[in-house]
Amino acid sequence: MLSQESLQQIDREIAKYPPGRKQSAIMSALRIAQVEKGWLPKEVIEFVAAYLGMPPMAAYEVASFYNMYDLEPVGRHKITVCTNLPCALSGGVYVADYLKQKLGIGFNETTPDGKFTLKEGECMGACGDAPVLLHNNHRMCSFMTTERIDQLLAELEKQ
């Protein structure tokens, strides 16, 4: 279900916790699985749960509680825009509108070519860099003016 490399990464995470506390690694394990699979189909969640010796429903509770896990397929590039107050004060809503217009999609939608998905995010803890957005959960893009958005999209288009 998961690659050897992913399993090794999960094993490294499990080792962080005391014996018998494998469940603590669920957040990392789901993250690792999501990076490999692009999103988290139920079979993958069940596999990860079994790997950590926990009920699949407990893993699903986690996967559905934390909003960076994707329970539906997303495009190759998931762009999550913060529209919370500090970002909004600095143009966050405009960043979102600009992206919607450029990509021709709304929030929680994916471009027909499967390249881009747009999400509305909550505070990312980088309000000093507002407006910010996240690319594929792990890359923070700061001070997103229209020019920088254009640059980013051009860069991602090529990938």
Binding site: P55, M57, A58, Y60, E61, S64, F65
Partner: peptide
């Protein structure tokens, strides 16, 4: 003895 139901989402 088996968590067949859970509270998903938030």
């Amino acid at each position: 003895g088996m968590m067949e139901l859970g509270q998903a989402f938030r």
